[in-house]
């Protein structure tokens, strides 16, 4: 790093930090959904990345419809599209849970493999429907451009929007988990499934809703993703390992841990990427996380709940 002045370094850190914030937002939204499902059912959804891509494609589809049929609606469609992405992904999630996951409930490793099979099918159907080329929705004007703080330091507006969106979703999820009747039932099921069933909670229904909610959040992640990158059939799978690591290193089903580890992973990746060429930044980050997990497998914030 010798060839940079301290002034430059500061700007680099701030700029990369901000681009890291976009990555953080996507990872956080992906991780929240995964953690919710993992905490609830002990199931890892390998198709989570494909749910994210579905959210992104939903936005693209909306943008296409708006352009063709209602151009005047252009500046506002994006907000509706986010909602639609959530609904579409949640619906597919509920269907998948009903058809597949609930039958494999006692075999978590097999769920992992079955959802991977699903991810293959989904990827190929995106390829058949939307083509193998990456697509970008037309973003509304107000998302474009950047805010110039000072010379050599620009903060992109879309990044800020994505960050805001993920904060809103996180707060909404926490409120939902800790302030609603459903959240109460969900937390009860996580803590003690048998007792919850005994006091009259329909745990199967809770599972399905939790899975749908997790997938829905992945859909929002996809919608957010469209503002910072283009979507291809394998866009989701590019983030999936990072998202897994966010969940695992955050600690089982801990929302706070998810937040902290998403931030750490995203920032480390984006700052290291500037100084190390190519994929080395990513390799270094992942390597550090995996080694850390070998030493402290319970993650940052282990849950204090006993198993079964």
């Amino acid at each position: 790093m010798g060839e940079y002045t301290s002034e430059e370094l500061q700007s680099i850190f701030i700029m990369q930090g901000f681009s890291g914030l976009s990555l953080f937002s996507v990872l956080l939204l992906m991780g929240l959904g995964l953690a919710l499902i993992f905490g609830q059912m002990g199931v890892i959804n390998m198709a989570h990345g494909e749910f994210m891509a579905l959210g992104a494609y939903t936005v693209y589809f909306c943008s296409h419809l708006t352009e063709t049929y209602a151009p005047t609606f252009g500046p506002y469609y994006f907000v509706a599209a986010i909602g639609l992405a959530f609904v579409v992904c949640a619906a597919l999630g509920a269907l998948v849970e009903w058809l597949m996951i609930r039958h494999l409930y006692h075999r978590p490793l097999d769920t992992l493999l079955a959802t991977w099979g699903l991810s293959l099918i989904l990827q190929q159907s995106y390829r058949s429907i939307f083509g193998a080329r990456e697509v970008t929705p037309t973003l509304p004007e107000w998302l474009m451009g950047s805010y110039n703080v000072k010379e050599g330091l620009d903060i992109p507006i879309n990044g800020m929007f994505v960050l805001g969106l993920s904060i809103v979703v996180t707060i909404a999820l926490i409120t939902f988990m800790y302030r609603s009747a459903f959240g109460l039932r969900l937390r009860a099921t996580v803590q003690n499934r048998k007792m919850s069933a005994a006091v009259g909670i329909n745990t199967g229904k809770v599972d399905r809703l939790a899975f749908a909610l997790g997938c829905g959040i992945a859909g929002i992640a996809g919608a957010a993703f469209t503002t910072i990158g283009s979507t291809g059939p394998d866009s989701g799978s590019r983030y999936i390992v990072d998202a897994f690591l966010v969940v695992v290193s955050g600690g089982t089903a801990s929302l706070l841990g998810c937040l902290a580890s998403a931030f750490g992973i995203a920032q480390a990746q984006s700052i290291l990427e500037f100084f190390l060429e190519g994929t080395k930044g990513k390799v270094a980050t992942l390597l550090v996380i995996v080694i850390a997990l070998m030493i402290r497998p319970q993650g940052l914030f282990p849950s204090k709940v006993r198993g079964n």
Partner: peptide, 25 residues
């Protein structure tokens, strides 16, 4: 450290990613 099941699967998968990216880079 009694890591097993899904955790082990995820960690080995990350190692596969690291290895292939490392060779690639």
């Amino acid at each position: 450290r009694r890591v097993g099941g899904v955790y082990f699967a995820i960690i080995t998968q990350s190692i596969a990613l690291i290895f292939s990216l490392g060779i690639d880079g």
